[in-house]
Design a protein around this nucleic acid. Structure first.
Lengths: 212, 212
DNA sequence: ACCTGGTTCAAACGTTCGTTTAAAACATGT
DNA sequence: ACATGTTTTAAACGAACGTTTGAACCAGGT
């Protein structure tokens, strides 16, 4: 087996276990066991446990954010040419759609989505700063675009609503398994397209609503 | 110092540290140090680390849920007498308002709110089953009430939207400190009342919207 | 003054953790 | 076949963890 194989197997195992149990509750021994690698392989290939987490996040977040950034840029450029303003739904879609599609792509990507969901829930955690380093430029641009598409809403309210949308999205990302809250009668299986539109219905309505 | 003092001080410290760093990243040594108690005090008073977590959650969640349950019951009884249906906003308010008010009550309650926010983000974690044991009856009743107040919405869609609302709320509960996402210009300070209405504006709009 | 039940204390227990080491195994170019 | 640089391996490291122990301490009742 080549080096690349071992590195990938470790990344896959780390992705799954970090997502399932969290960073601190996952030991390097359990990762290397699942990856069928030697315990020392992590420190040899990645340097430390924290660097492994960083590599795990970076591997998928970098290309994901390039897609998101590309779609958002294309949307903004199109609306600029036609001298219209982008709809809130279209702006949010550039962020949400690549994320939820990633989950159905297979090869463990759904574990990554859950891992990011967890990361967003640990404000002071190790993973947060790794995550933020990748997200900051995109988030600034997203906020800017939303501000453009919702001119009637103050920046403060806009920020809070974006905050709420992130909460919903990260919660959705985290829970790809059946929760105990959900009654047995309710089917949670949907196509990606349904998932995306169901979420956008909710999020856009919340973003656009006027004070009651 | 009496027993009660030590137990309370340990609960307060555990609440703060579990909320800030998570269950696994918090050591009993750091808890007892902050509580100015002996290391063995946790096992003497609570039996184990996990039982301490349980006691930490139970202490505040039990009375909180009694308030929520009482308000929801009062609302449902009133609408039954007047033969009207409860509004989605009123139903959600019985759940959201006691929670957000708790945060401003002081005496470390804001740490508890953040701890619950974290708990909701760890589907397989130790805290989740402790949390769910307290929540299940209330959640069933809440779901039932929302189903009543939104007759036009299928159970499946309703479930997902409740899921989104929980995501937003738990995210709000988690982040009582300033995030790095939020631009410096935006003030995040609000009164409890403003917070509640801002959240309900968002959540109710998302719950009630018709497919676009 | 003495006993008693509850509480605190310092010290140690056995485990598990992330990391390091140095030798063995492997691959590759000559 | 040999030398070279990379990867894997088993073993060990010190540190930190949750938990247990047994003696010390402190109240209140007799």
């Amino acid at each position: 087996m080549s080096q690349a194989d071992t590195k990938q197997r470790i990344l896959d195992a780390a992705e799954r276990l970090f997502a399932r149990d969290g960073y601190h509750a996952t030991s390097l021994r359990s990762i290397t066991t699942e990856a069928e690698a030697n315990l020392a392989a992590v420190n040899y290939h990645f340097g430390s446990k924290e660097s492994l987490l960083e590599a795990t996040i970076d591997r998928r977040l970098r290309p994901l954010n390039e897609v998101r950034y590309g779609q958002l840029d294309a949307l903004l450029q199109k609306t600029e040419e036609t001298e219209t303003i982008p709809s809130c739904r279209d702006v949010l879609r550039t962020f949400v759609e690549p994320t939820l599609r990633l989950r159905k792509q297979g090869s463990g990507a759904e574990n990554f989505v859950a891992l990011i969901g967890r990361t967003l829930a640990e404000p002071q955690g190790v993973a947060m700063s790794i995550f933020m380093r990748n997200m900051e430029p995109l988030l600034a641009r997203l906020f800017q675009a939303l501000n453009l598409s919702l001119p009637g809403i103050s920046r403060q309210v806009l920020f809070w609503r974006v905050h709420f949308v992130f909460g919903s999205l990260s919660h959705m990302m985290r829970c790809h398994e059946r929760h105990s809250i959900v009654p047995e009668a309710v089917s949670i299986d949907m196509s990606v397209e349904e998932e995306i539109e169901l979420f956008l219905d909710f999020a856009v309505a919340g973003m656009e609503v006027h004070r009651s």
